[in-house]
């Protein structure tokens, strides 16, 4: 599993962390039952605050990507669905948005509107 963060970026660190790990689950670099590094380990590895990592882990738990168990750390959760079809759809939507010069902010807003 690859985690990349850029402290110089405007995106909050915990969001960058969550995005990296989420991506690893979606592209199956890590699979159900795999243990993620402990928050302390990942924090010292990346030189970020442990609470930032915990924040990202809680975010991912709320989204159903991982399970947090006391004493066992973070485990990749079992999901009964695949993200493959969704990923295909997103690729198509993004390509469509690009051809019409629709900005990311607009596209995100449109998706949010549709979802609610």
């Amino acid at each position: 599993m690859l985690v990349r963060v850029d402290p110089a970026s405007e995106t909050p660190l915990f969001e960058q962390l969550a995005a990296s790990i989420r991506q690893s689950v979606i592209d199956r670099t890590v699979t159900a039952g795999d243990r993620l590094p402990s928050a302390r380990e990942l924090a010292s590895s990346l030189g970020v605050n442990m609470h930032t990592v915990l924040h990202a882990y809680q975010e991912l738990r709320d989204e159903g990507f991982i399970e947090l168990r006391r004493g066992r750390g973070a485990i990749v959760a079992t999901t009964d669905h695949s993200y493959d079809s969704l990923a295909d759809g997103i690729t198509a939507i993004v390509a469509e948005a690009r051809t019409h010069n629709v900005s990311l902010a607009t596209l995100t807003a449109l998706i949010r509107e549709e979802y609610q």
């Binding site: 599993m1 690859l2 985690v3 990349r4 963060v5 850029d6 402290p7 110089a8 970026s9 795999d34 590094p37 990942l42 590895s45 990346l46 030189g47 970020v48």
Partner: peptide, 15 residues
């Protein structure tokens, strides 16, 4: 090397 900003930090772990 992975492309990215000079300020990026990376962590890779596997079993």
């Amino acid at each position: 090397p992975i492309a990215g900003a000079a300020t990026q930090r990376v962590h890779f772990s596997t079993t």
